[in-house]
């Protein structure tokens, strides 16, 4: 496995870890963002290995667009949550359960 691919997978794991442990909403969103940066790396590696770099590039650009939209929506929801109870803590998001 090339170091680039390893880096990509490590970034995905970091993002997942952030979602599991961070209590701050913004950090969770940052975790998502890191995850979404890791996966394109693997596409790039794949493009290099299989000699289809042009395709890989277009894929990566599309992923970045999707990721940007997702993060924008996420941030707007975070703002809405903050406006409701003036905190970014995840523990405030526990009213719906059972």
């Amino acid at each position: 496995m090339s170091p680039y691919a390893a880096t990509g997978i490590i970034m995905v794991v970091i993002g997942l870890y952030a979602a599991m442990t961070r209590k701050n909403l913004l950090r969770v969103v940052l975790g998502l963002s890191i995850m979404a940066r890791g996966v394109p790396l693997i596409f790039i590696v794949g493009g290099m290995q299989t000699g289809t770099m042009s395709a890989a590039q277009s894929i990566v650009i599309t992923i970045i667009v999707i990721e940007a939209v997702t993060v924008a929506v996420a941030l707007s929801l975070v703002v809405a949550a903050y406006n409701h109870n003036k905190t970014l803590s995840i523990t405030a998001l526990r009213r719906l359960k059972g």
């Binding site: 997942l16 599991m20 442990t21 995840i90 523990t91 998001l93």
Partner: peptide, 13 residues
């Protein structure tokens, strides 16, 4: 079903 986002992610993992 704790309703906690961290736990939800944990379930996923």
């Amino acid at each position: 079903q704790t309703g906690d986002l961290n736990y939800n992610s944990l379930w996923l993992a």
